[in-house]
């Protein structure tokens, strides 16, 4: 299972990074979200893989590490705030600049002929 988790994180990171390197705002936000998933899972599994354990006192047999969970919980909410912020920033940029390229302009040499 450890290998599978590592592969999942690797794929999410790769896809996230590839989209982050695009020129338009929307794919970048998608990439950012994918990267967020990867990072959240990464922090989460730093408590190791513990199927069938519990974080509630008195429930189940044995406890898993609650600390990474607490970290990830707030991270999920914060990354929502960040995604929303960047998204609105992108909207504003489009309104101000007239296009949705991150550089604020579409360079001729970038456009595939």
């Amino acid at each position: 299972m450890e290998i599978l988790v590592a592969v999942v994180i690797a794929v999410l990171t790769s896809c996230g990074v590839y989209l982050l390197l695009r020129g338009r705002t929307f794919p970048i936000i998608l990439g950012l979200t994918l990267l967020t998933y990867a990072v959240n899972i990464f922090i989460f599994v730093s408590g190791r893989l513990n199927p069938g354990k519990s974080t509630i006192i008195g429930v189940g047999e044995g406890y898993t590490d609650p600390l990474p969970q607490a970290l990830v919980l707030t991270a999920i909410v914060i990354s929502f705030a960040m995604t929303a912020f960047v998204m609105v920033l992108a909207l504003r940029a489009r309104a101000e600049l007239g296009n949705d390229h991150v550089d604020g302009r579409i360079k001729v040499e970038d456009v595939k002929s």
Binding site: A6, A10, T13, G47, R48, D65, P66
Partner: peptide
Amino acid sequence: LAAAAGIGMGLITFAMITRPYETLS
């Protein structure tokens, strides 16, 4: 770049979760 980043993250993850650790939990 994306492949390098992804493979790197995957290896780090694998190396991390197959090692014992100490926690304050």
